[in-house]
Amino acid sequence: MSTKNFLFVNRKAPYGTVYALEALEVVLISAAFEQNVSLAFIDDGVYQITKGQNSKETGMKNFSPTFRALGDYDITKLYVSTESLAERGLTVDDLMELTYEDADDDYAEKPSIILVNREEMAAMMAEQEVILSF
């Protein structure tokens, strides 16, 4: 099977709709098929990877811990929109510390989150072969 560059664009808040959870499931499935998978977090999608989520009142499972498993699936590039963070009064310190172990660098732990502005996001998207938006 050929390998393609997949980008999953997450634009919605984690709870209230099923988009974010469904997107994450598809992400894990694509990675299991050894595709080159990256994620982007734009608009309310940035809330998906914030720290200290409590979904109790929503009746949905708090699935934010699953983002910490992405490194195990060799998903190491999580692009986060700086504009979307700023518009919501968030900084990178409000996000979970998501890391991966770099097999090419003696398994050193490295950050997966890459902050990008609108232009950088567009340039990154231009390099993708498949883009799925949720």
């Binding site: 894990l28 299991a32 050894e34 699935f63 811990p65 699953t66 910490r68 498993a69 195990d72 699936y73």
Partner: peptide
Amino acid sequence: EEYQIAPAVRV
């Protein structure tokens, strides 16, 4: 318990 998913066999 830690990640809220059952890992794929490769993982």
